[in-house]
Amino acid sequence: MRIQSAAAVGVGALAFAAAAPAGALAKPTITMSGSTSVAPLAAKLARAYLRECRGCVRFKLLQGGSDVGISDVARGRVTIGNSSRDPKPGDPGGLVFNKIARDAICIITNPANRLPNLSQAQVQAIFSGSVRDWRQVPGSTISGPIDLFVRTPASGTQDAFDKIFMKPQKVSTVASQKASNGLIQQAVQRDRNGIGYVSLDFTRGVHTVRYKGVACTLRNAVSGQYEGVRNFYMVTRGKPTGAAARFIRWVQRSTTARRVIATDWVPLR
């Protein structure tokens, strides 16, 4: 099964449910796979939902990247595919992208290189590989070769980075590709010459670079000052029904869910 293969590529599975009394009827299970950016938010929302509905469902959360989640839900392998990218013309038919929040993508460097700011032209020059040494980057506090860390093609973060920061340029083919936000975060933490990009929730332990003079913070993402913001979706095969419909409706409309989202992400207006 694809669910097993998703867990095997280094992105773990979380399963959680409220305790049920002996002899209780089996509860419906909502399975999710996909975006490593959406996963931390999905886990927090699921736990909050379980507390409010008193354990009305069970959740199983896998990761693997947005394209994996979209493929899994299209094939009926999971109930919800978590995606951090917008729909594409080539996506399977019949899918519904249920928007749940927005998220900031931050450019990060190692703490040894406290780069103050990057323009879009500088971002494109660095990540396309046309600028290859930190001595060529104004404000860099180190010198030496630039080590690029990017996401794999299946990543919604990669898709959003291409559209928001890079278009019409392309990311260099020599960049080191990582399968999750956490792996990018760890790679940049360990490499003083490293630079990458991650969801705002993955910026601990690294230096976050201003983009076009604006800091990548939740406040600036909410206000619209920070431009590097993309959508989060819970994707279903057709209009959601049953337990999934109740959960997604709660995510989109409840005050509790809005408070959870507002901790590190941008709630829907």
Results as ranks from 00 to 15, higher is better:
residue 121 A to R: 07
residue 139 G to H: 05
residue 173 T to N: 04
residue 128 S to K: 02
residue 150 V to C: 03
residue 112 A to C: 12
residue 161 F to R: 07
residue 113 N to R: 12
residue 163 K to S: 10
residue 149 F to S: 11
residue 170 K to P: 01
residue 179 A to L: 14
residue 122 Q to A: 14
residue 170 K to I: 14
residue 167 K to N: 10
residue 79 T to Q: 10
residue 125 A to P: 07
residue 138 P to G: 10
residue 117 N to R: 01
residue 76 G to M: 05
residue 99 K to L: 07
residue 167 K to W: 02
residue 84 S to W: 00
residue 184 I to V: 15
residue 88 K to P: 00
residue 185 Q to K: 11
residue 113 N to S: 11
residue 160 A to G: 15
residue 115 L to D: 04
residue 163 K to W: 02
residue 94 G to E: 08
residue 154 A to N: 14
residue 82 N to W: 01
residue 137 V to Y: 02
residue 139 G to N: 08
residue 91 D to Y: 12
residue 120 Q to G: 15
residue 97 F to Q: 07
residue 72 D to L: 09
residue 80 I to G: 06
residue 75 R to I: 14
residue 148 L to M: 06
residue 92 P to R: 07
residue 145 P to H: 06
residue 71 S to I: 09
residue 85 R to H: 03
residue 173 T to D: 01
residue 97 F to G: 03
residue 175 A to E: 04
residue 133 D to L: 09
residue 116 P to V: 04
residue 177 Q to A: 11
residue 183 L to R: 13
residue 98 N to F: 03
residue 168 P to N: 04
residue 107 I to T: 07
residue 176 S to Y: 01
residue 127 F to D: 00
residue 102 R to S: 15
residue 92 P to C: 05
residue 152 T to I: 08
residue 157 T to Y: 00
residue 184 I to T: 10
residue 150 V to S: 06
residue 85 R to W: 01
residue 87 P to G: 03
residue 133 D to I: 13
residue 111 P to Y: 00
residue 154 A to R: 15
residue 119 S to M: 05
residue 111 P to H: 04
residue 182 G to N: 06
residue 82 N to A: 14
residue 167 K to S: 09
residue 109 T to Q: 13
residue 179 A to D: 10
residue 112 A to S: 15
residue 148 L to G: 02
residue 73 V to A: 06
residue 128 S to C: 03
residue 83 S to Y: 05
residue 119 S to I: 06
residue 120 Q to P: 15
residue 182 G to D: 03
residue 85 R to F: 01
residue 184 I to G: 02
residue 131 V to R: 13
residue 155 S to K: 14
residue 152 T to H: 04
residue 174 V to A: 06
residue 71 S to E: 13
residue 169 Q to A: 12
residue 136 Q to A: 15
residue 81 G to V: 10
residue 163 K to L: 04
residue 95 L to I: 09
residue 101 A to K: 09
residue 133 D to W: 05
residue 178 K to G: 01
residue 153 P to T: 15
residue 182 G to T: 09
residue 89 P to I: 15
residue 167 K to F: 03
residue 83 S to Q: 11
residue 139 G to A: 12
residue 72 D to H: 04
residue 77 R to D: 13
residue 183 L to A: 10
residue 127 F to I: 13
residue 164 I to F: 00
residue 123 V to H: 00
residue 75 R to A: 15
residue 112 A to W: 08
residue 102 R to P: 15
residue 110 N to I: 05
residue 153 P to D: 12
residue 120 Q to E: 11
residue 162 D to C: 09
residue 128 S to E: 02
residue 82 N to Q: 15
residue 86 D to I: 11
residue 100 I to Y: 08
residue 166 M to T: 11
residue 104 A to H: 05
residue 129 G to T: 14
residue 161 F to Y: 06
residue 128 S to Q: 03
residue 124 Q to D: 02
residue 124 Q to N: 10
residue 125 A to M: 03
residue 181 N to L: 00
